[in-house]
Nucleic acid binder design. Structure first.
Lengths: 231, 231
DNA sequence: TTACTTAGTGTAATAAATACACACTATCTT
DNA sequence: AAGATAGTGTGTATTTATTACACTAAGTAA
């Protein structure tokens, strides 16, 4: 195709802030780079957008290559385009956050060419990151903190069946504040978007809690009854 | 600089949804293209990002070239990167919304090379737009509709001194719903972010209303006391 | 059987949101 | 100057949502 547009030495990339919730902690997936620049540094997973793929597709592809998972909840949140954000040239990066269900400690597929390993690291314990990835992470974290208070994204991080205590813990770690148990339950159950199951938690050495499921159909019906929490 | 990164025939652009509020109507600034593709179509103002400028800078530059204004409230909201969104090649576009005070009917600076004219058009009366610009507009509009209910962005569209009725009208057109006058005033004044002036509206043929100013300092003090409206 | 750990529950007080209607005031007209 | 017009400005009662707060029940482990 004849391209009459100017051409630049510029590159697009995608960077992903991939959240997981495990053992009561909110974590993100970081990779250790095995290439310059920033060889041996920790970085957000990301890669270059191919010429013939959409940016959403690129984001899904990167996540798939890294984790072997498809159909993950992802959302684009910001594009970083400072001139010198990459030491080797002009790279504009579109950032996405993703949410992964870490039921138990799931093993990830081996990692692609540019990284030697991928590790889940608690958000409260992050190392220094390559490029401007700290800025990217922090904007992504702000974004989900905001979003969790009006959209049911928390369920993307929990196993399909979960207890109200697990749900509350997740809200607490994302919002970074304690919530009152009774009020939390009252409010959450009142939305009518949880289905109470006939099952109980297993393998705990104390009274087992009831399990619940997120009821997507009921949620869609109520549709724009937005959720509010942590105000 | 030696660039070891792959090079693509890809181009970045910026597109802007520029909002203004005038005569009780919410409008956006559209240009009529005088170049192919989409010659003679209406489009959002936008242009290509230069190689040595940040995307924020590009957005400000484009707005300046189009309107002669600087220091305008702008915010990036989404990046559109479908493969075929531009018929002549791969163009990824980062979109911004901006808010302009249209006190009276302000004349705009003449428009740059790629457009024959720029016109303010009510959002309820938009023509078909070039490229995927309808999608871009609509996402931008959703964004400000959401944002206005927790951030004081409405004031960016009003003259420095405004009446409560003007403010309420603006909320109403953005949220596309009627609000109750008494409740609106009570709530708005309660936030304590408006300064009542000793002045009144002029040039109206009926009882003149009191003028108010947005009190940025008080707002910053209350800081994250988010505003809610239209629920 | 006892100790331990977490699950599960209700009510009262306060704050916020909603619904609702009329008198006042400045200007314009005649 | 009297009346018409058009928008300003105000209060209260009701409903709904939010907050604060502490004990008993159930299951497991020793």
């Amino acid at each position: 195709m004849g391209l009459s547009l100017p051409k630049f030495d510029s590159v697009f990339s995608i960077d992903c802030v991939i959240f997981g919730f495990d053992e009561g902690e909110l974590k993100i997936l970081l990779i250790e780079r095995n290439e310059e620049p920033f060889k041996d540094w920790w970085a957000l997973p990301g890669y270059i957008v191919e010429q013939d793929e959409s940016i959403d597709h690129a984001a899904e592809r990167i996540l798939y290559e890294l984790t072997g998972l498809r159909g993950i909840y992802m959302d684009q949140f910001y594009t970083f385009g400072d001139v010198n954000r990459h030491p080797q040239g002009r790279v504009i990066t579109v950032s996405y956050y993703a949410m992964i269900r870490l039921s138990g400690s799931k093993d990830l597929k081996p990692v692609s060419n540019y990284a030697s390993k991928a590790v889940w690291i608690p958000v409260n314990d992050l190392p220094k990151l390559a490029f401007d990835h700290e800025k990217i992470f922090s904007k992504g974290f702000d974004k989900i903190r905001h979003k969790i208070s009006y959209q049911p994204i928390a369920f993307e991080l929990l196993p399909e069946k979960f207890t109200l205590t697990q749900l509350q813990n997740l809200y607490e770690v994302i919002l970074n504040k304690k919530l009152d148990k009774r009020n939390f339950r009252k409010k959450m159950l009142n939305y009518g978007i949880l289905k109470e199951l006939d099952e109980k938690q297993k393998g705990v050495s104390y009274r087992a809690a009831k399990l619940y499921k997120f009821d997507k159909r009921k949620y869609s019906k109520l549709f724009q009854k937005e959720i509010t929490f942590g105000k």
